[in-house]
Design a protein around this nucleic acid. Structure first.
Lengths: 186, 186
DNA sequence: CACAAGATAGAACGAACGTTCTACTTTGGG
DNA sequence: CCCAAAGTAGAACGTTCGTTCTATCTTGTG
């Protein structure tokens, strides 16, 4: 019955995202996960490992969401659906920015956390590139375009967070549509 | 002789940026600013006010840098020089992302910090819009374009931080050039 | 049933940290 | 020169927090 581990990771993901890493202590996680303190320390050696587990939980959640919602489509639609999916994801979730960015920013010296964040971003970028390939772009061109699309997705989340600008994702999507329509496309 | 206040704000900006808010305590700031603990508490009521002062210090520093480096130019150059300036700024500074974003992410409940971050971003966005006007864009069009350019700037910083991608700013600049060359420009 | 492994509640501890306080020294303007 | 304001060094306090430990209870399996 290792559902406890999942309970803790899920609660950590949820509470850390809502309230930030600094503001949430171990006992708070224990309460939120309906778990005993000893149980948490049985599954995770220390606080950092709980944070990493929260990030891994979110990683799975987020990429599964994107892959499910942005599946079909042809040409540029393959890519633009990522923006729609991101918009839906952010909506209803408070729009508190990117948890991976926040975790890395909060613990600049912690190698485990930084690694989890970098791994996530790499796979996120790989997903973008995959969609470009699926949309018919040449491999060489997809490799060029993916970082720029990625950058628009990241910028949209950041702008939505700091400025509370809910239209940021739409703006990013529009910009992406223009860039994808450039000559040298397919 | 209120240079002490400035010393503290400068040291806080520098150390917070390099090591993160959670990892830097009051005594560390006192050491780094070459100031006594009592002096810090004479100038700032509590830790939060030191953080706000660090953000205000950075705000002045950063916007002055951008305004100085991206002054001349015509048309799209007015705007693209912001990307060059941002690239130079990030370079040599460790590329640890946006301090305002990090501060807001770290203290989601602290109204003073969030306000300082929002104020900064608004004035940053206003600078972008001003450069578009200077570059010859119609007011209406500038208001449309500014958030997208802003989003590219923000995304570049975020991508450079999480992925360590030093080419992110160049990619963002290139994307901006394409967007600015779209019909309906001036 | 029995037993081992996991879960629980909560006490306990040690370290870190923000903040206050005290006593002493420096400094600059009237 | 004098004095008030600012700075210094460092002790001290109270709190918070991560982590460990103990004792008791559940639970699934042979």
């Amino acid at each position: 019955m290792s559902s406890k581990r999942r309970d803790i990771a899920e609660a950590a993901n949820r509470v850390f995202y809502r309230e930030g890493f600094a503001a949430v202590g171990i006992d708070r996680l224990v309460d939120e996960a309906n778990v005993a303190l000893g149980t948490l320390y049985r599954h995770f050696g220390d606080r950092t490992q709980v944070i990493v587990a929260a990030l891994e939980h979110r990683h799975g959640e987020f990429l599964a969401y994107l892959e499910e919602r942005a599946r079909a489509g042809e040409g540029a639609d393959c890519v633009l659906q990522l923006f729609d999916a991101l918009g839906n994801w952010s909506q209803g979730r408070g729009g508190n920015g990117c948890l991976f960015l926040r975790a890395a920013a909060d613990h600049p010296h912690d190698e485990r956390i930084r690694q989890a964040a970098v791994d996530h971003k790499r796979r996120y970028l790989a997903l973008v590139e995959q969609r470009l390939l699926q949309g018919g772009w040449r491999a060489e061109r997809a490799e060029e375009l993916a970082p720029v699309i990625f950058l628009l997705l990241e910028g949209a989340v950041a702008a939505a967070f700091t400025l509370g600008d809910a239209a940021a994702v739409a703006g990013a999507r529009h910009a992406a549509a223009i860039l994808l329509a450039q000559p040298g496309a397919s």
